[in-house]
Design a protein around this nucleic acid. Structure first.
Lengths: 350, 350
DNA sequence: CTTGCAATTGACACCGGTTTCCCTTATCGG
DNA sequence: CCGATAAGGGAAACCGGTGTCAATTGCAAG
């Protein structure tokens, strides 16, 4: 342990010149070893590698960044209301980055600001990022993707619709997942099903709504406009959207909320009116946040593999750099599953 | 907007040499302007500053990092089970960093691993971090603080006890906050109050327990060991800890849980047994996570200003660099407040 | 035995800043 | 009016890597 620490302290000062001198070769040769250049004598390589291993030398990232014009940093760009999602993504990404030479730089941006694009451009070019991962909803912005292309910055966009562009996207299939969830409600006998939709302009909101409508039309159920309430993906918006649905007469016997926060709002609104869940009202949410098991009754919801998607995104970005090149071109569509808990009950035969 | 973008594209290629040529001075003089060197003619400075402003030149961070031997990166090091807290801290830190030249690099570590210290040392020295912010519980590790000192890396430790070392710490006073909360329970007539403590080895757990015991002893209430149950700061551990408390006879009339997750567990366990909250059992949690308003009844809890603390920590770190030097030596103790919601009721006169 | 080509390796410039050291020039006291 | 002193400003080295291109070596072909 003490020796280890000593080594560490030592290698903090070691430069490529030191290694070159010890090995009796030039800087350039050491550089070739580090960068796995193929045009290099096997013996020379071995000798240098031995010395690198013995001394614990690690090349200075700042110097590399300057010479290469590129850093070994991954940027995580988000502008998201959903904190839980950011954190899970971040976790997945960090898992993939762990043990590599890459570090993660986080960068929240303000979609509302007029200068977002310039901010991001500055971030990317100044830091000479190796690549960026874009979280929704800003990932849905094509201008941003074009900007990355222009600046020669690798990127991966996270999303919630089927793939347009496999090389640059990691997505979940929200539409099908929601359709499944709603089919489940229908199978339980529900016919008057309310939707609390996500905010306009969010792709995920649209996909989830499409899935909802798809399942209904499959079953030949008509959807009056009044059964669709707008939400903002927040708890509070879930409450008020739910109230407008409960004001209907007859009121819906089931509600699908486009995320768990709003589903929790439904639970809250129902309790205020003394409506029993799930006996008088069934609820399904989306996300499978920890919240779903903390509330009562525990929420039936759609789980999408956020952490795994984060990992996949990171891998797609750095795949070629860490010798996992195969990951890069692999299409990355993840599927979600319905998690049945306690917020759905069959409709009693009237 | 178009012009702006053009400027941005331009300045990506501008170097200090270009500026020097345009201003008709040497690189060094431009460097002096950038670094606010005092030994510089006012006119020269103004001229150069004008050109920098016009062209939108920004010095290359990689080159600076190499020359200076230090990066403009802040590291966020954590090993925490409490995801919510990490994210709030991160938010506060990013708020403070916004608009500065600093970026945030996040670094989860595994406290269990034998190589944690070497990992962190590698992270700090390799990236030549400007400074790091340490989140609890690993911030409580003195070896780590010493390591930062050795490596000449600025650091700020977040914590939950009164200050040992104002220069390097931003803390909340958990003990007093909990004492207040428990005094409130006592004022409501409760005498048999259970504690669900946090895990051993966490400073916050100890502080909160101390506060709990303090309030009880002030009021002359004895605390049998059986009224203290161990938890792990998780929902599940809250449930089982609560069950052991509810098995007592007579059972407690109130429970203080050392965090909200465990308090939610208490709610869950109570519901399983058909115990009414707050009428038959009062509950207070700690953290004021969003969860507290999603559950029923909404949880009375202790709010600590996590985001503000994150901001303060970042400011303490970069204060001198951004001309807010005063922030650095300011002691940073934050106080928490009791948020009264619906999970506490007065004890009915028996 | 000489020439051509491929495989290795090294010398040197360069990435874009900062630092060291020295020279020039302005200011001031005698 | 002259020399001392200090401040402004520039040339060149340096931070620690990588890219370019030429030099060296070994070996097969002519």
């Amino acid at each position: 342990m003490a020796k280890q620490a000593q080594d560490e302290g030592l290698n903090a000062k070691l430069t490529i010149n030191d290694i070159a001198r010890m090995a009796g070769v030039s800087k350039k040769t050491v550089s070739r070893v580090i960068n796995r250049s193929p045009l290099l004598n096997a013996q020379t390589r071995e000798k240098v590698e031995q010395i690198i291993a013995d001394t614990g030398y690690v090349p200075n990232p700042q110097a590399r960044a300057l010479a290469l014009g590129r850093n070994f940093l991954i940027g995580l760009i988000y502008d998201n209301p959903n904190q839980q999602m950011i954190l899970s993504m971040q976790r997945g990404i960090l898992e993939a980055l762990h043990g590599t030479e890459f570090e993660l730089v986080v960068r929240p941006v303000d979609r509302g600001s007029a200068r977002v694009m310039d901010d991001i451009r500055g971030f990317i070019t100044r830091q000479r990022l190796y690549g960026v991962i874009l979280l929704p909803p800003i990932s849905e912005n094509d201008t941003l993707a074009r900007l990355c292309d222009e600046e020669g910055c690798r990127y991966v966009r996270m999303g919630s619709a089927v793939l347009d562009d496999p090389e640059h996207m990691v997505v979940s299939n929200d539409r099908d997942a929601v359709a499944d969830a709603v089919r489940y409600l229908i199978a339980q006998g529900h016919r008057r099903i309310g939707l609390i939709a996500g905010p306009h302009g969010f792709r995920s909101a649209k996909e989830r709504r499409d899935g909802f409508e798809l399942a209904l039309s499959e079953a030949g159920i008509s959807l009056p406009r009044s059964l669709v309430a707008d939400g903002q993906y927040t708890f509070e918006s879930g409450i008020s959207a739910c109230e407008s649905l409960l004001d209907l007469s007859p009121r819906p016997t089931a509600i699908f909320a486009a995320n768990d926060e709003m589903a929790a709002g439904v639970l809250y609104a129902a309790r205020l009116r003394g409506i029993e869940v799930p006996d008088e009202l069934s609820i399904i949410g989306f996300d499978d946040t920890p919240l779903t098991t903390r509330v009562w009754p525990p929420l039936t919801t759609v789980r999408w593999p956020i952490v795994a998607m984060g990992r996949a995104a990171a891998l797609k970005l750095i795949g070629t750099a860490i010798g996992e090149g195969s990951a890069v071109n692999e299409p990355s569509t993840f599927s979600s599953t319905l998690i049945r808990r306690g917020s759905v009950a069959p409709l009693p035969i009237a």
